[in-house]
Design a protein around this nucleic acid. Structure first.
Lengths: 197, 197
DNA sequence: AGCATAAATAATAA
DNA sequence: TTATTATTTATGCT
């Protein structure tokens, strides 16, 4: 049954507990305790310098149950049922413990030892920021005006015409849609402001 | 000179130190210590659930030096010169301390206090009005008579000679020029008035 | 050192 | 789970 309420929603629906962390229990599961664990898990993950994606990959690389980036995300936000959380928690707890024992020195020493963690995980460096030529920008803008969601084929065509990586083109459209959305939001904000005066 | 190497690049160029955190020093600045601070700063920021953007906004809303999201980003990555880092560090340190004292309970209680944080940390306090000694006024007036637009170097010299903040000196000149302009305008107004009658 | 925005990460939809 | 959007971080410019 997936219509059960999530931990987050259950806790949110509670009357104001005046910032107390008390033992809210559902089906014998202590939600406040789970919340605290989720928070600490995230902090420990960040202290190790790991992303949700990396933890997900690491989990799926070992035997036993594995979870995706999205699953980690939902766990950290407690956007899951108490039952589900109870199943996931020990897996994460064990994995985090092992990771800290092995790579805890990274806290002090930077990414030196990371090599061992997952050979390829740490290897990837951030892609260099692309700078588009004005001509390319113009063509991209024209294409965007015609269609904000070009198909794969169209993007491939643009990619080869402009001689940029296809992925770079894809991201350009993502960011462009974002920018458009933001500017619309800003305009609406202004309009509202004006009419309300 | 902005071609000086950054802390990150300096540390990276070092021969493998076998995971030791030793005191690498440049210009009397301990780079390893700075690295540790930057790492802890990030962790503390995340523990408070704040983004770089939020810290940047909070900083720019209080008096004293302020830094943008980009600056915070570069500091955390140590993508800055040792000298620059030394200037920024105390500002971040003080701010983080204040933030933790005030909003540390957020660590336990979730984002309840976020609004308070922004409101409170954003409350920019007005700088206390400076009062100049008669001696200082005299020296400033003399300088103004020679040059109404002193260069940066000259203002710095005045600042250290008179022992006032450089910014205070800069503002004094701004205000003085304004006063001069006003008095000229007033004189002209009178003159016009007289001739037209 | 800050703006604009590309790229990476987290969150949500499908 | 995978695909996409939303948010945050990082970086090329000046």
């Amino acid at each position: 049954d997936d219509d059960e309420p999530t931990i987050a929603s259950t806790l949110a629906a509670l009357p104001d507990r005046n910032n107390q962390t008390i033992g809210t229990t559902v089906d014998g599961i202590n939600l406040d305790e789970m919340k605290e664990f989720a928070k600490q898990f995230k902090l420990r993950r960040l202290a190790l310098g790991l992303t949700q994606t990396q933890v997900g990959l690491a989990l799926s690389a070992q035997r036993g149950p594995s979870y995706s980036q999205s699953a980690i995300c939902r766990f950290e936000k407690l956007d899951i049922t108490p039952k589900s959380a109870t199943k996931i928690k020990p897996v994460l707890e064990q994995w985090m413990h092992d990771a800290e024992v092995k790579f805890g020195d990274r806290l002090k020493n930077g990414p030196t030892n990371l090599h061992e963690l997952m050979t390829d995980l740490n290897a990837k460096k951030r892609k260099r920021r692309t700078s588009f030529t004005p001509q390319a920008i113009e063509i991209l803008n024209d294409a965007f005006e015609i269609n904000t969601h070009p198909s794969g084929v169209e993007m491939t065509a643009l990619s080869s015409r402009l001689n940029y990586d296809r992925e770079v083109i894809r991201v350009w459209f993502c960011n462009k849609r974002q920018a458009l959305k933001n500017s619309i939001k800003k305009l609406k904000g202004k309009a509202k402001h004006l009419t309300s005066e």
